[in-house]
């Protein structure tokens, strides 16, 4: 399962990236998608199978499940993750 985690600031997203990478998780730092938030910022794409607790421990202020792209485009879609 791929999750997108948003943080209160880009620097906290960066800190979370370092932490998760250090614990061996596959993490990608990307700009916050427009569907998720309209202001500028960075968030994390995480392969979170079995490591949800480590992800939550980094203090995200939002979690989204990553869905397949809209048909005919490359833009991923997201739905809120409880």
């Amino acid at each position: 399962m791929r999750l997108l985690a948003t943080y209160p600031s880009s620097s906290s997203a960066l800190r979370a990236e370092h932490r998760l990478k250090a614990s061996g998780l596959a993490v990608e730092l990307i700009p916050v998608p427009r569907q998720v938030r309209s202001n500028c910022g960075f968030c994390l794409l995480v392969d979170a199978g079995g490591s949800l607790e480590s992800l939550r421990a980094t203090g995200p202020d939002g979690l989204w499940r990553v869905l397949d792209p809209e048909p005919g485009t490359r833009r991923r879609r997201y739905e809120p993750y409880p």
């Binding site: 960066l14 730092l29 990307i30």
Partner: peptide, 15 residues
């Protein structure tokens, strides 16, 4: 560097 990473990622999602 953060902005450049973001820019190149965004290009991968461009149609």
């Amino acid at each position: 560097r953060l902005l450049m990473r973001g820019f190149l990622y965004t290009l991968t999602e461009c149609d």
